[in-house]
Write a protein that binds this DNA or RNA. Structure first.
Lengths: 340, 340
DNA sequence: TCGATTTGCTGAATCGTTTCTTCAAGGAGA
DNA sequence: TCTCCTTGAAGAAACGATTCAGCAAATCGA
């Protein structure tokens, strides 16, 4: 059995197709008698009619579709959250998501954007899987665009990134509240926005508490387990070792745990640790479970789509600004008062 | 500047639109002189013409689009790989992926499938984020479908799942080759296909090596870190403790590491361990790095899409069978010869 | 040379909507 | 009674492709 067309509904209701269209789309200011309206609605219901979006798109030039282009959707657990946030928000609004991943290749990316524009997507989410600066393809000038988890260096489109500074402030604040005054920061040696933002938050929060900055307490290593191990070791070797360490991410915190274990330092009694990222398989599974700061990937995904829908629906409104999404502190068991 | 239409190309080349269509689509058996063909192609190139897929779809009833419905695309790191595999395969074939996630809710799932059918997707990938049995929505009977990472209990559609049994055999085989004869299995207490498959692989491989089954050596706990810890503890408390433990997954292996550390058992000298899943943040990060079995999610994703495209292109060919995707062993540092 | 076939191409119908224009009927006002 | 609005609805023209049937001109066989 073929899907019913609008013509079938019209025939069953004994009216013209245009009237059916007008009724089913609730066109403003259309004049249709209540009886006719009811006849049409019940005919549509009886036939199980749903309009063909392809034909509709052809006529209206809108597809109720948005393109999601990401540089890497598989290798980070965060990507899924962003995608899911975007998907949920789109779905709620009656939009569907075209997903394309480019592997970070420039040529493929241009190809992908072209393919999406060809398909007449109503808008595009341009996402990167970790917070950084990006140059967005100029082709995106032709369509509403929102950048997700990155700062665009060209064009002027809305974007959303995590509030790294605020998250770091929350982490350090938690340690201050526990009574710590000598707080180390094991940071990432790469020049990424996340590192500079978190470092800034660390410094600001200490300054606000009138604790003088001690350059010794900031050590940079690779942002992985062994980097964390090394950073912690260096901090332990200081003349006066810190009573708490704020780690750039959970993986470094994991290395920090290992270094502490080797020195016989018990967390949180001899040492307090706070991480960043709230990674599923690390933070809750370490023992003791790690207090950390969560990245709001899901929320950024929904924000991006909602902002995009505003762009699509309203007039352009070129007030292209960035949005900082707060990073909530997740309290677990790795923070205690300083020893003695 | 508006996008050029086929009519513009025709006008520029001085031919009719039908000829342009025939040339650009490389229609078989069409008779067009080489000169005309060349004129049309260069006109199209000059105008930067690309056909409007919406209009094309309306006429041809094909959308070059496939729907991917998953029950949960965010919370597992595996989901991303499957999606990426599917996306890559689709992209290669000129298809785009509509992504929908249902959160496992039945109502939402029906809604999602209906939305995809409304949009006239050419096919649907029905994916679950861990290997299990599913009942697929009957609406999917109207469209080509492939089930990904699950066994459909109704209908007869192709599906692909990991070869759990083979993976377990590889893991146990590795331990046998290292010289172990007394090998424990820390399994998951839930009744899931992965657990029964891996258990079967374990038994078969031991049997093939003429090692009598010892029921004591199989202990079931929750499939997480604490479950692994408990299972390992129980195995250590046996009269004659195993020299190697095959863990249902990497998280259990992580718990097993912890239990071993507490008893002063050094891996791989006093105890060998093999995991399953090859989880990014666990297997390579543990110390020593964990030998484990990888789940072929990316490959399953590409397989599913390729199979789906066959279904779409060829005649139905109702030979709906399941495919077992091999799980490769990943050698790291947690396996050594048995002690003494 | 003449009909028959092949070649190369065109026009028009079609896909299923939306939307603009038109139009008949009925009621109101003069 | 005649004209002018208003109301309710229908018809037809888009949207931009594909594809089928048809039609001149060229070629061919005898």
């Amino acid at each position: 059995m073929q899907k019913p067309r609008i013509k079938d509904v019209a025939a069953r209701a004994g009216v013209g197709v245009s009237t059916v269209s007008v009724v089913l789309n609730n066109v403003e200011g259309a004049r249709v008698s209540p009886e006719t309206r009811e006849r049409i609605l019940s005919a549509a219901r009886a036939l199980g009619y749903t309009s063909n979006p392809i034909a509709r798109s052809l006529r209206t030039r809108r597809t109720q579709t948005i393109g999601f282009v990401g540089d890497d959707i598989a290798t980070t657990p965060f990507a899924g959250r962003m995608i899911q946030g975007a998907q949920d928000a789109a779905w709620q609004a009656g939009y569907l998501l075209f997903l394309v991943n480019t592997g970070g290749e420039h040529a493929l990316e241009r190809h992908a954007v072209r393919a999406l524009l060809d398909r007449r997507v109503d808008g595009v989410i341009y996402a990167t899987m970790y917070h950084r600066h990006v140059e967005i393809p100029e082709m995106l000038g032709d369509v509403s665009t929102v950048v997700l988890d990155a700062c665009p260096t060209n064009g002027s489109v809305p974007y959303v990134v995590p509030d790294e500074r605020g998250g770091a402030a929350a982490a350090v604040g938690e340690l201050l509240r526990a009574g710590h005054r000598r707080i180390g920061f094991a940071t990432e040696s790469l020049e990424v926005p996340a590192a500079s933002g978190r470092l800034a938050g660390y410094h600001e929060t200490l300054a606000a508490a009138r604790i003088p900055a001690d350059p010794e307490l900031v050590v940079a290593e690779h942002g992985d387990t062994t980097g964390g191990y090394r950073a912690a070791t260096r901090l332990f070797d200081l003349g006066e070792r810190p009573t708490a360490i704020f780690c750039y991410n959970d993986r470094m915190a994991m290395g920090c745990y290992r270094a502490a274990a080797e020195r016989g330092l018990r967390i949180p009694y001899d040492l307090s640790v706070v991480g960043y990222d709230d990674q599923d398989l690390i933070a809750p599974e370490l023992s003791p479970a790690l207090t950390t700061v969560a990245l709001p990937h899901y929320e950024m995904g929904t924000w991006a789509v909602r902002r995009l829908l505003e762009l699509i629906r309203d007039d352009p409104e070129q007030s292209a600004q960035g949005h900082l999404m707060p990073c909530p502190l997740v309290r677990r068991d790795s923070v205690g008062p300083p020893p003695r």
